[in-house]
Amino acid sequence: MNNGVIAWLIIFALSAAGFFIIALIVSVRGFADLRTLLQHSEQRDKPSKFPGEEEEKVSG
């Protein structure tokens, strides 16, 4: 194995480790975020499916 290959393999190992470590952290913490997002949405008043659609127009 020459030095170029070894250098790329080290960079690959660091990159893959970085990917999987962030994936682990985000999987755990993301679940809490997801619960917050959905709880917040459930707590909102929903008088109709699309409130104010008669008056409100899409911007642009």
Partner: peptide, 26 residues
């Protein structure tokens, strides 16, 4: 069932926090 309006449909009501944002982006 959580889609109440246009911003809910298009950008999830702009309420996505950091970790969930990273997960969905990746």
């Amino acid at each position: 069932r959580y889609v109440e309006d246009l911003s809910g449909y298009m950008v999830a009501g702009r309420r996505v926090k950091l970790s969930l944002g990273i997960a969905t982006f990746v």
